[in-house]
Design a protein around this nucleic acid. Structure first.
Length: 277
DNA sequence: GCGACAG
DNA sequence: ATCTTGTCGC
């Protein structure tokens, strides 16, 4: 019997892909939760020597971070990376890598269809093996609801996508601004420089429509350039901000930074052995 | 209509 | 994302 060639998750027709992707985002978005929805709690911040702290739910301890790096010569060859850090010590407890050939191109607004599969696979592998370090929260290199879609309708970035599919609380961390709802580099620079905000390190990203898409954060003292934080899934913006602040040794929060560094190293080592380019 | 546009 | 050296400073 003759089988037609396996249907790739992408067609040869960019227009067809685009439509498929929009539909997929619309369906997934119905499951999106925009508020705190998790069993753990943040460590008690107060100096209260209360002894009733330990009798309720567990605290946040395992924070994951994901990122993808590419081979310099072939942009379709990539390494997906998942790390898990101890929330208190910020030490890496777990790391895993997966080399893949990406068949889907990068299209602004549809990053998830290129990067999410590898990252979800890494999470799935960890969960299947009942790894005790399976993250209670995941930070994603990319945006959450800070994401363009028509006239304020949608908003479903990579962090939302992964959060819903993995059913995990996620936070989106952008190192560059994705233009949305009138927010541009210049407009944000203007807001940041505003006299009222010049002393603050967390600024709401309010679009033309009045909607708050996330925040721009000057996460470390030595950096003028902010990071852009938006909620992914099952977390509130307020909680997301606190967690990011608590995990920032440098501009980029440690879970993302470690995933980024180790992902690059992994590829670098491969390029050293393999070929003499 | 043209340009802008996470990684 | 990636191509890239030195350099100014704690």
């Amino acid at each position: 019997m003759e089988k037609p060639p396996e249907e790739p998750s992408h067609s040869q027709d960019p227009l067809r892909d685009h439509h498929t992707w929009i539909t997929a985002q619309d369906i997934l978005r119905e499951k999106l939760i925009l508020e705190d929805s998790f069993a753990w709690k943040l460590p008690t911040t107060g100096a209260s020597p209360s002894e009733t702290d330990s009798n309720k739910g567990e605290e946040l301890r395992y924070v994951g971070g994901v990122d993808i790096s590419f081979f310099k010569d072939d942009p379709s060859q990539a390494c997906g990376t998942l790390v898990v850090l101890d929330f208190h010590t910020l030490q890496v407890l777990y790391q895993d890598f997966s080399l893949v050939t990406l068949q889907v191109p990068y299209v602004p607004g549809f990053l998830a269809f290129r990067e999410a599969p590898v990252l979800l696979q890494l999470l799935e592998k960890m969960k299947r093996s009942d790894n005790p370090y399976y993250p209670q929260l995941l930070m994603v290199d990319g945006n959450g609801i800070l994401h363009p879609r028509g006239n304020g309708k949608g908003s479903f970035g990579l962090a939302c996508h992964i959060g819903v599919e993995a059913n995990l609380p996620t936070i989106g961390i952008g190192k560059n601004l994705h233009h949305v709802d009138g927010l541009t580099h210049s407009s944000v620079r203007k807001i940041l420089g505003d006299e009222d905000n010049s002393s603050k390190d967390v600024i709401n990203l309010v679009g033309c429509s009045g909607r708050i898409w996330g925040v721009a954060m000057r996460s470390s003292q030595g950096s003028i350039k902010p990071i852009f934080i938006s909620i992914g899934h099952r977390i509130s913006l307020h909680t997301a901000i606190m967690i990011v602040q608590m995990t920032c040794k440098y501009r980029v929060p440690e879970p993302i930074r470690q995933a980024d560094i180790r992902s690059r190293d992994y590829i670098r080592k491969l390029e050293m052995n393999g070929k003499v380019t």
